[in-house]
Amino acid sequence: MRITYLLAAIALVSLTRCKKMPNDGYPFYLRINEVQLNTQSVTQGANTNGITDVWIEANSTNLGGNQFPIEMPILEEGTVRLVIQAGIKANGFAEARIMYPFYAADTATLTNVKRLDKIIHKPIFTYKPLTKFRFLEDFEFGNQFSYTMDKVNNGDVAYGNWCGKLSINSTQTEKETQSTTAMVLPGGTESWIEFDYKADASFEVGIYAGPNRLSKLFLFPKQNWTKFYLNVGNEIGSYKGEQFNIFFKVKMPEGASSANVWIDNVKLLTF
């Protein structure tokens, strides 16, 4: 029995040593400098995105997720089939980097790949066909939030010509706005809110489930427009059957006399 095991081990080592490695062990290099999101603007809203990572698969070998720009060494040759997934920071947390469930993978086939080749590829992502846009507001043709959210055109928007704005001052030191149309949403599925924002004060975002106010996060001020992905699947699943509304709220920071929050391209997505 020991001899049988020994012979099997020797055979396995021999096969491993004799197996030819692609490109004689030299990789080619895949360079990704940027990505793009394509949308159908009328039905899917703006193509702003907060994609920070790419998850790469080459000829069915999972190479994991990495921030871009990146130059990835890949030990393949000849024809190389790439499948690239878009990664985001869930709820804005750097330690919660995931493949965003609503973006379809970018695929590409490279041919005649040789060792030490340097290949530049720009992944192009789209929304998956099964994505349902339960709420969509870009402020271009209306305002589906309560009157406390102003619609403004100041030349500085995330997309298009208009955005929403919450402004407070010494006479009105806090404001909350809600989406005006209640949504009945399915539980047990992915449910995310996307929006672009910039702010000179911290503000709160969450959802109402019927009369239940479910605060989700407080976001820090940002000088530049930032894309945010908020996972509300647990909240919607816990209050299945209720009617849901999105809310944003800002309160005056200590020592300040005014504060502003700009919001654009609000989407609520499910499958």
Score class of each variant (00 low, 15 high):
S202H: 07
V80E: 06
Y159W: 15
K132Y: 08
N62C: 06
T226N: 01
F68W: 13
T43N: 06
G164P: 08
L15K: 12
I124D: 07
N112Q: 10
S170Q: 14
P101H: 02
T16E: 02
V113I: 04
P253E: 09
S238V: 02
F271A: 08
I84K: 15
R31K: 11
V232I: 12
I56E: 00
Y100V: 03
A256R: 09
F28I: 01
T126V: 15
W55V: 11
I88A: 04
D24H: 12
A46S: 14
F247R: 04
V232Y: 03
R115A: 10
D196E: 14
Y5M: 10
N143T: 12
V250G: 05
A8M: 10
G45V: 01
S191K: 14
K19N: 03
N33R: 09
T109E: 10
G210W: 04
D196N: 15
Y5D: 09
L136K: 10
M149V: 03
K19D: 00
Q40W: 15
I207Y: 07
N38K: 15
I56V: 13
E95P: 04
A90E: 15
G78T: 03
H121L: 08
K216Y: 01
S215W: 04
G155P: 00
L82P: 04
Y159C: 07
R115E: 09
T111E: 10
S14Q: 13
T61C: 08
I98W: 13
G64I: 06
I246W: 08
T226P: 01
I246M: 05
F203V: 02
Y159K: 15
L12W: 07
M99P: 00
I84A: 11
P253C: 04
K128A: 08
Y5F: 11
K20L: 11
S14R: 15
I120M: 05
F93T: 03
G92A: 11
Q223E: 07
Q40K: 15
P211V: 02
L116K: 11
Y100I: 00
V266G: 02
S257F: 00
F195R: 09
Q144W: 11
A209L: 04
Y26S: 05
I207S: 02
Y197F: 08
I124S: 04
L75H: 12
N91D: 15
K216W: 08
S146I: 02
P22I: 03
R17V: 05
G87Y: 08
G241C: 02
A182T: 11
M72G: 00
G188C: 04
